[in-house]
Write a protein that binds this DNA or RNA. Structure first.
Lengths: 252, 252
DNA sequence: AGAGAAAGTATCAGTCGTACACAAATGCTG
DNA sequence: CAGCATTTGTGTACGACTGATACTTTCTCT
C-alpha cells in the first residue's frame, strides 16, 4: 500500500527526499539552495530580514519562484531552522552529568552564533534530521541511567528550553541596548531607572534587590562573556541537580 | 535637577504616569483604552490579529491616532503584555517549595488563558508594574531561604522561563493540530509518521523511544488536560528539586 | 476674542505574502 | 523529428500592514 509510506511534503523536504521526476523543465533551483540563501540572509540581517523577495533576488530569481520549492514562508523557516542547527557534536562522556553539560553548552554555542534561531516559531514537535540527531545525542548520554522515557524526554526538553530561553533573552537585551554599552553597564542603568519606580512599601523585596550589590558592583575587569557564562551555568547546574535527584531515586 | 527623576516615555506609560498637560485639545483616547482594546483583539484573534488599523477601528478611530499614545507597535505589545499579565495572586505559603509551586501554576494559568502572551517578544528586562509584582511575589516566597540574590533571581527566571516555554509549546502544537484531534491522538500520529524516517542504525535510542509505549498507549480515558498537567509537573518538580539542593546547601 | 498647543485625520509611500494565469524548457510518444 | 504533456520560473495583481508628513479640529490660557 502506498498509504503506508506516505510522508507529507514538508517532511519530505526536511529529510531531503528529492522527487527527481525527470519530466518537464529541469529545475535550476532546489530546496537546499533556497534554504542556504535564506540562512545566509538571516545571519546577516536577522530573522526579520528574511523575506521572500530578498531571498529570491539574492539568487537572481523572482519571489514567486520560491513557492515551487517551499510550501510557504513558515515552512521555509522550519527548513532553515533544521539546516542552521546542523549536526550535534560527538559526545561520549563517561557519566551523564558531564555529558548533558557538554550537550547544553554545545547547543548554546550554536544558538549564540545564530541568535535568530531562537526566534523561529516552532511549528511542531522536533522532526528535522538535525533536531532528531541532537535528541539522539541527549538520549544516548542518558542511556546509562535508569530513567524512564518520560523523564529522559522531560530532562532533555527542560535543558533545551532553558538554553533557548537563555540565549534569546540575552540576544534580545543586547538588541535593545544602546551601542557601545556593555552588559554590566546596561544592567546598572536598568537598576537605577527602575529603582525610582519601585516603591519599597509595595515591593519590599524587589526594592532590597535593587539596593543590593547585584547590579551595581560587578568587578569592572570581568568580561561580559564571563558574566553570561556564570549566569547560564547557575541555571544549568540547578537543572542538573534536579536531574541527579531523579537519577538517584530511580537507582536505589 | 530634572535629570534625576527623568523616566523615559515608554516606562512612564507602563507605570501609568499620565501627563495631564491641560493644554490644547483634550484627548478622547488614552493609553489604557488603546491597550485594553488591543488585548481584547489579541484574546479573540491571537497576536497576529493585533494590527494598528484593527485596534483603531474597533475604537472608532483611525490607525494613525494611536501613535499619539503609543510610540510604536512594539511598545504597544509591551504595554499589552503587562496589562494582560495582571496582578499576581496572594501567596503566603509556609515554605518556599509549595509557594513556588503555586506561583508557577498561577503563572501558567494566566498564560493558558492568553496564549498570545507567550509570543510577545520581550523587549527588555521585566519593567512593568505587574511584572515587578510577580517578581516581588516570587522573591517574597523565597525570603525565608538563605539563598543569595543571584540564586533567587536565577531560580525565579528559570521557573518563569519554563512556564512560558511549556505553555507556548503546547499552544503552538495545538494550533498546528488538525481540528478535532486530541493531544493523545496527535502524539500517536506524530510518532508513527516519524518512526518511518528514523533509521534505527543512525538513531538507535530515538528508534527505541518511538517503539516504546510513550506515544502509543495513553490510557484512553485520561483527559488531555491531565496529561499536560503531568508533563508540566514533571519538569517543574525537577527544577524544584534543584532549588532544594541549593537551599539545603546554603543552610547547613 | 484670538493665539497657541495638542489631538485626531487624510493621504501616501514602501513592503510583504501569496493567488493565478501564463511563458519557457524539457523528456516522452508517435 | 514533430508535437504533447509536464514541470519550472515569471508577470501581474490584490489586500494588508507600518509608519511619515502635513493637515484640520478642538480645546485652554492670556
Amino acid at each position: 500500500m502506498t498509504s503506508d509510506d506516505f510522508v507529507p511534503a514538508p517532511l519530505r523536504r526536511l529529510w531531503g527526499m528529492s522527487e527527481s521526476s525527470r519530466l518537464g523543465r529541469p529545475p535550476s533551483l532546489d530546496v537546499n539552495v533556497v534554504v542556504a540563501a535564506a540562512v545566509k540572509i538571516a545571519d546577516r540581517d536577522g530573522l526579520d530580514g528574511v523575506t521572500l523577495p530578498k531571498v529570491a533576488t539574492s539568487l537572481g530569481f523572482t519571489s514567486m519562484s520560491l513557492y515551487r520549492h517551499v510550501g510557504s514562508k513558515d515552512e521555509l523557516l522550519t527548513l532553515m531552522a533544521d539546516a542552521a542547527l546542523g549536526p550535534p557534536p560527538n559526545i561520549d562522556a563517561p557519566e551523564w552529568r558531564g555529558g548533558l553539560r557538554r550537550w547544553a553548552f554545545a547547543h548554546r554555542a550554536v544558538l549564540q552564533r545564530r541568535p535568530w534561531l531562537t526566534r523561529v516559531p516552532v511549528a511542531g514537535p522536533p522532526s528535522g534530521p538535525h533536531q532528531i540527531a541532537w535528541m539522539e545525542a541527549a538520549l544516548a548520554i542518558m542511556s546509562d541511567t535508569l530513567l524512564d522515557w518520560a523523564h529522559k524526554i522531560g530532562a532533555m526538553s527542560l535543558i533545551s528550553g532553558y538554553v533557548v530561553q537563555s540565549v534569546r533573552q540575552h540576544s534580545e537585551l543586547a538588541d535593545g541596548r544602546a551601542e557601545g554599552q556593555g552588559q554590566a553597564d546596561a544592567e546598572r542603568d536598568y537598576g537605577r531607572a527602575l529603582a525610582r519606580l519601585v516603591n519599597p512599601d509595595r515591593f519590599p523585596e524587589t526594592a532590597r534587590l535593587f539596593a543590593s550589590t547585584l547590579f551595581e558592583a560587578p568587578p569592572s575587569d570581568t568580561p561580559d562573556e564571563a558574566i553570561a557564562d556564570a549566569d547560564f551555568s547557575l541555571g544549568l547546574e540547578l537543572i542538573l541537580d534536579g536531574v541527579a535527584v531523579r537519577v538517584a531515586r530511580s537507582d536505589p
